[in-house]
């Protein structure tokens, strides 16, 4: 699904990623944890193709193609989805119109016919249930005036609508109360299957009680310094990050 080899990237002359290696196979859920400033969100941004980040080395192959050469829209059309840490408000564009356009652009790129309004509304109705979203929200402007929890739910709703092959969740759990967290996690779990993969970036082990990962990686100073299974996340929760810093030494 995704193969990241020795990925290096900088933003505004500051080197952030220092050689990331990660392989994600179909159906796998990978959690990426790490202290503040370790490069978690940079990794998500580089994968999604955000302009401000400059890749200085390495490669990323997504479903057999060079991801780094693709525009953000082509990445999405190929099946990549980023759930934003800070979803953007877009006044004047309704959620429904936005999603219908996005969905049909993706379908078009994959040689499918556009979805008609009736079918779209039907699917939207189903997926709204998944994240317990109110119908009125689809007619509101994208994220405008949404609460923090509503914005995150809207990200998961979009993901459910667009049905990506690989979803990257960038701190989707941050700032959520336990109910909102459960809703978001349920949404993600409902989308898990044998083909679809997830990269779940989080600060908190708590999320991983709800979205149980196959692998856990610790990112530190722009590198994955430790990988394991869900037990690693629990260890981090219990002991913090300091032992890892010591274990890997200050030489990195």
């Amino acid at each position: 699904m995704l193969e990241i080899k020795n990925l290096q990237a900088k933003v505004e002359e500051k080197q952030i990623l220092n050689g990331i290696n990660l392989t994600v196979n179909p159906g796998e859920v990978h959690a990426i944890m790490g202290p503040n400033g370790s490069g978690k969100s940079t990794l998500a941004s580089v994968l999604a193709g955000r302009d401000e980040y400059e890749v200085t080395g390495g490669e990323v192959v997504f479903r057999g193609e060079n991801l780094l050469e693709m525009s953000p829209e082509d990445r999405a059309r190929k099946g990549l989805f980023l759930a934003f840490q800070y979803p953007v408000e877009i006044p004047g564009v309704t959620n429904a119109n936005f999603l219908k356009t996005a969905l049909n652009e993706i379908r078009k790129a994959n040689g499918q016919t556009p979805m008609d309004s009736k079918e779209f509304l039907q699917i939207m109705k189903e997926k709204m249930k998944l994240v317990e979203m109110d119908k009125a929200m689809t007619q509101r402007s994208v994220n405008e005036g949404f609460s923090g929890g509503e914005k995150k739910r809207n990200e998961v709703f979009q993901m459910a609508m667009l049905e990506p092959m690989l979803a990257v969740l960038d701190e989707t759990d941050s700032g959520l109360d336990i109910d909102a967290l459960r809703i978001v996690a349920n949404g993600v779990n409902a989308l898990r299957n044998q083909e679809r993969s997830f990269i779940v970036i989080t600060h908190y082990q708590r999320l991983l009680d709800y979205i149980v990962p196959d692998f856990v990686h610790v990112l530190y100073k722009g590198r994955i310094v430790k990988s394991g299974t869900k037990e690693l996340a629990m260890e981090l929760e219990a002991k913090g990050y300091d032992w890892i810093k010591e274990e890997v030494g200050i030489h990195i």
Partner: peptide, 17 residues
Amino acid sequence: DSEALFYLRSRGIGEKE
């Protein structure tokens, strides 16, 4: 707004659109 533009593009909507 470049953030809004990126957001739309990251959902598969072309730059011009």
